[in-house]
């Protein structure tokens, strides 16, 4: 099963976990698994329109899934998905 790694700001909503091994044939499915397991995560990952929030990025290894097949990017045994926030300000 693939692994999904959680950045520090989201760990309080995931029982303090840094990483979880979860089933998922693609990125959308592993995200569904993690928000089912930890429903509090959902509002931090998704906006009201059920789209991923703009500052939420997902990487498969070192590749942004936007450059792959987005949420349909297939996952295989041993893949690592990282949730990475964008940071900005002024």
């Amino acid at each position: 099963m693939p692994t999904i790694k959680i950045p520090a700001p989201l760990r309080p909503y995931a029982d303090g976990q840094r990483a979880l091994i979860l089933p998922g044939r693609n990125v959308a499915e592993i995200l569904e698994e993690i928000v089912t397991l930890y429903p509090e995560l959902k509002k931090h990952l998704y906006g009201d329109d059920t789209q991923l929030r703009p500052f939420v990025n997902l990487f498969l290894g070192d590749e942004n899934i936007k450059e792959l097949q987005g949420l349909d990017t297939p996952l295989t045994e041993g893949d690592i998905i990282l949730i990475i926030p964008s940071i900005a300000g002024g």
């Binding site: 790694k5 950045p7 990025n57 990487f59 070192d62 942004n64 990282l82 990475i84 926030p85 964008s86 940071i87 900005a88 300000g89 002024g90």
Partner: peptide
Amino acid sequence: AREDSARYNRYLITAEDMLQGE
């Protein structure tokens, strides 16, 4: 990572840089 004209009062850390940080 902000464009030249905005860097005097804005900053941006790209997702790729955050990945390297993680």
